[in-house]
Simulated scan of single mutants.
Amino acid sequence: MAESETEKLPQFNSHQEVVEFFDTHDMGEYKSELPEAFFDIDLKRNQYLVSVDGYLMGKLLEVAKEQQVSVEVLLDSWLKEKLLKAS
């Protein structure tokens, strides 16, 4: 559909009505009716890679699976606990 042929949005009385409406309608058909959104994103979080022995990684994977978390979450939690005890 060309932009000049976009649909007009109905009036909504709540955020829930908006959500329900777009559950069954394509937002692209209303693009000329939608306001632009501006927001900032802070991408300053650093992540670091570390080497882990294959046997140790296997054990970590087992524990993570038992606890139903990712290895990254498990290690992050364990390292924070260990650092708190060391401080």
Rank of each mutant, 00 (worst) to 15 (best):
M1H: 06
M1I: 10
M1L: 14
A2P: 05
A2N: 13
A2Q: 12
E3P: 04
E3L: 15
E3Y: 15
E5D: 15
E7Y: 04
E7S: 10
K8H: 04
P10L: 08
P10Q: 10
Q11P: 02
F12I: 09
F12Y: 11
F12T: 07
N13Q: 10
S14Y: 11
H15I: 13
E17A: 13
V18K: 08
V19Q: 13
V19G: 07
V19I: 06
E20Q: 09
E20I: 03
F21G: 01
F22K: 03
D23P: 01
D23L: 11
D23G: 09
H25G: 03
H25K: 14
H25A: 10
H25L: 11
H25F: 01
H25E: 12
D26W: 09
D26E: 14
M27I: 15
M27A: 14
G28H: 12
G28I: 02
E29N: 11
E29Y: 06
E29L: 11
Y30E: 11
Y30S: 10
L34M: 13
P35T: 06
P35K: 03
F38P: 00
F39C: 08
F39G: 02
F39K: 05
D40C: 03
D40K: 04
D40W: 05
D40T: 05
I41D: 11
I41C: 05
I41F: 15
D42H: 03
D42Q: 02
L43I: 08
K44E: 14
K44C: 02
R45I: 10
R45S: 10
N46R: 14
N46K: 15
Q47M: 10
Y48L: 12
Y48D: 07
Y48T: 11
Y48K: 13
Y48Q: 09
L49W: 15
L49D: 08
L49C: 04
V50M: 10
S51H: 10
V52H: 01
D53C: 02
D53G: 04
G54A: 15
G54K: 09
G54L: 06
G54C: 05
Y55M: 06
Y55I: 01
Y55F: 15
Y55N: 07
L56P: 02
M57I: 02
M57G: 00
G58A: 06
G58H: 05
K59I: 05
K59C: 02
L60E: 03
L60W: 03
L60I: 12
L60Q: 02
L61M: 04
L61E: 13
L61D: 07
E62F: 07
E62Q: 11
V63P: 02
V63Q: 08
A64D: 04
A64G: 04
K65E: 05
E66M: 13
Q67A: 10
Q67R: 14
Q67N: 15
Q68N: 09
S70W: 04
V71L: 00
V71I: 08
V71S: 00
V71D: 00
V71C: 00
V73I: 11
L74N: 00
L75K: 01
L75G: 00
S77H: 05
W78P: 01
L79E: 04
L79N: 08
K80A: 07
K80I: 04
E81N: 11
E81M: 07
K82N: 05
K82L: 05
K82C: 09
L83R: 12
L83W: 07
L83K: 15
L83N: 09
L84V: 12
L84D: 09
L84H: 11
L84A: 14
K85F: 13
K85W: 14
K85M: 14
A86G: 01
A86I: 03
A86K: 12
A86N: 08
